[in-house]
């Protein structure tokens, strides 16, 4: 039996998510045993031609060239999985969606005329059909291995979509919002990181994006009670998943009230 072929694609991103695969040290040989790593430039210069049974797509769409390239990637991928906040929500670079990109290029580049970029940073799913979205900035190595494993066995990945609070409670971390009055995005953020920040007495930063159902209005009302001002709330919502619809809508509503 021939092994399914894996390809890893990069768009606008920092490479951190795809490196999670190389970071899977103990499991890497097992991955290579189960799937043929056919196109993964971070790992090997040898690139085998498509089609690919499994494509992992990292990064967001920020240039006209990438908007075309993702169509080609989709065409030669049977099962396409986006990995990370950039690919699933546009990433931190989606902050440009609220700014003047021409002004950015003028102030950053010596010859802005050479820069051919879009006004927006958008998720892969805004351009092509995506079969599964893996969240996180960065993604969790364990969750990535679960997705690969599930693909190999043809089952649904066991990736929970409930809140970070569930992970806090499972590991026995006391709620930082209730016990310390620390504003936390955990109740509206999807689990997956293992609730790292609250375990170190920090509020959740929302790296895994909105949970499956969220009530941001109720959470932000509680933040107001904790004396968090509106501008701080907008900043909290506009990080790695700023353009995830639930976070985006909430921050735009807040900004309109400023």
């Amino acid at each position: 039996m021939t092994k399914p072929k894996l390809a890893v694609w990069k768009f606008a991103s920092c490479d951190g998510c795809q490196l999670s695969l190389l970071d899977a040290e103990d499991e890497l040989l097992a991955v290579a045993g189960a799937i043929e790593i056919a196109n993964f430039p971070e790992a090997s210069r040898e690139v085998l031609p498509g089609p690919y049974q499994l494509s992992l797509v990292e990064g967001s769409i920020t240039t006209p060239h990438d908007a075309e390239r993702i169509q080609a990637v989709r065409a030669e991928s049977e099962f396409l999985v986006t990995i990370g906040a950039c690919a699933t929500a546009g990433g931190i670079q989606a902050l440009r969606n609220w700014a003047d990109v021409a002004e950015f290029t003028r102030s950053v580049y010596a010859t802005p005329a050479f820069i051919d970029t879009l006004d927006t940073s958008t998720a892969i799913a805004d351009h092509v059909t995506v079969d599964f979205e893996l969240r996180g900035c960065p993604i969790s190595k364990e969750q990535l291995l679960e997705v690969v494993n599930a693909f190999i066995y043809g089952r649904r990945p066991a990736i929970p979509e409930y809140s970070v609070c569930v992970e806090c409670k499972r590991r026995g971390t006391t709620c930082v919002m209730v016990a310390d009055g620390t504003p936390c995005l955990g109740p509206v953020t999807q689990a997956g990181c293992g609730a790292i920040c609250p375990a170190y007495n920090r509020g959740c930063y929302g790296c895994f994006g909105p949970a499956e159902s969220v009530n941001l209005e109720a959470l932000l009302n509680e933040w107001r009670r904790l004396e968090v001002d509106e501008a701080t709330m907008v900043r909290a919502l506009r990080t790695y998943n700023a353009y995830a619809p639930e976070f985006r809508d909430a921050s735009e509503k807040l900004e309109a009230s400023l």
């Binding site: 409930y162 569930v166 509206v188």
Partner: peptide
């Protein structure tokens, strides 16, 4: 429902 976060705590 207008107050509940669905956080499961």
């Amino acid at each position: 429902a207008s107050r509940c976060l669905l956080c499961a705590n």
